[in-house]
Simulated scan of single mutants.
Amino acid sequence: MTYALLFVAIVAEVIATSALKAAEGFTRLVPSLIVIVGYGVAFVCLSLTLKTIPVGIAYATWSGVGIVLVAGVGWALYGQSLDLAGAVGLGLIIAGVLIVNLVSKTAVH
C-alpha cells in the first residue's frame, strides 16, 4: 500500500508540474487549479509514505521518477527535445532509483 501511495504522489506531482506551463504564471484558472490540487495530493500522499519508507528513499524515488516522467511529458505535449546527454542523464536517474529501491539496505524491501 505504501508504494501505491508513493505512485499516486508521483503521478499527482507530474500532472501538477506539467500544468504549470499551461497555467502561464497562474493567470489561467483551470490549469492553476490543477497545479494546486495536484501538488496538494502529491504532498499528502508523499507524507503518508514517510510512515513506512525512509524520507531519503521516498524523496529520491518521488523526485527521480518525477523528473523522468516530466521530461517525457515535455517531449510529448510541449515538443521539447532531448539530446543524447539528456537521455543518458535521465537513464542514470532511473538507474539510481532502481539501485536505491532494489539493492540498497536503506530501502524498505
Score class of each variant (00 low, 15 high):
M1A: 13
M1R: 10
T2Y: 13
A4W: 11
A4C: 05
A4M: 11
L5M: 13
L6I: 04
F7C: 15
F7I: 15
V8I: 15
V8H: 08
V8D: 04
A9I: 00
A9V: 02
A9F: 01
A9E: 03
I10G: 07
E13M: 00
E13G: 09
E13T: 02
E13H: 07
V14L: 02
V14A: 08
I15Y: 01
A16G: 12
T17F: 00
T17M: 01
T17V: 03
L20D: 11
L20Y: 06
K21S: 08
K21I: 01
A22Q: 10
A23G: 13
A23T: 12
E24V: 05
E24K: 14
G25V: 11
G25T: 09
F26Y: 12
F26N: 04
T27I: 11
R28F: 05
R28S: 12
L29H: 05
P31F: 02
P31V: 05
P31E: 06
S32H: 07
S32V: 03
S32Q: 07
S32C: 10
I34N: 07
I36R: 06
V37R: 08
G38Q: 04
G40R: 06
V41R: 10
F43R: 04
V44N: 05
C45Q: 04
C45Y: 04
C45D: 04
L46K: 01
L46G: 02
L46D: 04
S47D: 15
S47Q: 12
L48G: 01
L48F: 12
L48K: 06
L48T: 03
T49I: 08
K51I: 11
K51E: 15
T52H: 12
T52A: 15
T52F: 11
V55D: 06
V55R: 07
I57V: 15
A58W: 00
A58V: 03
Y59K: 02
A60I: 03
A60H: 06
W62N: 03
S63I: 13
G64R: 00
V65C: 03
V65I: 15
G66T: 01
I67G: 09
V68W: 00
L69Y: 05
L69D: 11
L69Q: 10
V70G: 08
V70P: 13
G72P: 02
G72C: 07
V73Q: 06
G74A: 00
W75P: 05
W75G: 03
W75C: 09
W75V: 08
L77Y: 11
Y78M: 02
G79S: 11
G79D: 10
Q80D: 15
S81T: 14
S81R: 13
S81G: 15
L82A: 13
D83W: 07
D83Q: 12
L84R: 12
A85K: 14
G86E: 14
V88G: 12
G89L: 08
L90N: 10
L90S: 09
L92F: 14
I93P: 13
I93H: 02
I93D: 07
A95W: 03
A95V: 14
A95E: 04
A95C: 13
G96S: 10
G96D: 10
V97T: 07
I99Q: 11
I99F: 14
N101A: 04
L102K: 09
L102Q: 12
V103A: 14
V103H: 11
S104D: 05
K105H: 10
T106P: 01
T106S: 14
A107H: 01
V108N: 08
H109E: 12
